[in-house]
Design a protein around this nucleic acid. Structure first.
Length: 184
DNA sequence: CGGTTTTGACCTGCGC
DNA sequence: GCGCAGGTCAAAACCG
């Protein structure tokens, strides 16, 4: 559970990803954030909007909307608020015309919400792979609609179909990005 | 026909 | 305690 096929980018500089693969679209990773469990990620769009050089401008403070970890049951007995999310939360902003970027995983949309700080709706996705509890939020930057803010919540407990492809095509990984195939 | 998307309702946490 | 905002559920609609 230490290694997961998530992307890591040690280089805070803007990384330009060009579509070397069919599954990757042309977009620029303007900002990113990787936080381990315990750390609350807050993709403060307000703060981001107030600074142009958002590179490294992410706030690590707790988000006001972040819910505590507690077992809560719904009226029908369904558990809500898992005691702990999958562990890692990754947020990054990309310049893309398309809101949904194909990262190799299969996502199923389960919600859409209008958020206060943004005129654009926020979309909620779950990994459609069985047993995988990873979620992802996608919303457009309120200041720059050309940017898409994507937040991954959790870690896949399976490999992406693309990881297999990556192993045979290192060119897939842009400079500065590291792919960590799951040992499982 | 099975999987996905849409969409409104529901639930919870937080601030006042 | 109340209202608001965010997150999730689930039924219906949609699509390949």
């Amino acid at each position: 559970m230490d290694h997961h096929p998530h992307l890591q980018n040690p280089n805070p500089n803007s990384t330009h990803l060009t579509g070397n693969i069919d599954t990757w679209l042309d977009f620029e990773v303007e900002d990113y954030l990787v936080l381990d469990d315990g750390s609350e990620e807050s993709f403060s769009s307000q703060n981001m909007a107030s600074s142009d050089n958002v590179t490294g401008g992410f706030e690590s403070a707790s988000a006001g909307a972040t819910s505590s970890n507690s077992n809560i049951k719904r009226k029908n007995g369904v558990n809500r608020r898992k005691p702990d999310h999958a562990g890692v939360r990754v947020a990054f902003r990309t310049k893309s015309e398309l809101e949904v970027m194909d990262d190799g995983f299969k996502w199923r949309k389960y919600g859409k919400k209008m958020v206060k700080n943004s005129p654009n709706p926020r979309n909620y996705y779950k990994c459609s792979s069985g047993g995988c509890n990873v979620k992802k939020r996608v919303e457009r930057d309120r200041e720059d609609p050309s940017y898409v803010i994507t937040t991954y919540d959790g870690v896949h407990n399976h490999e992406s179909p693309c990881v297999f492809y990556y192993n045979h095509t290192p060119l897939m990984v842009p400079n500065g990005w590291t792919l960590q195939p799951s040992p499982s």
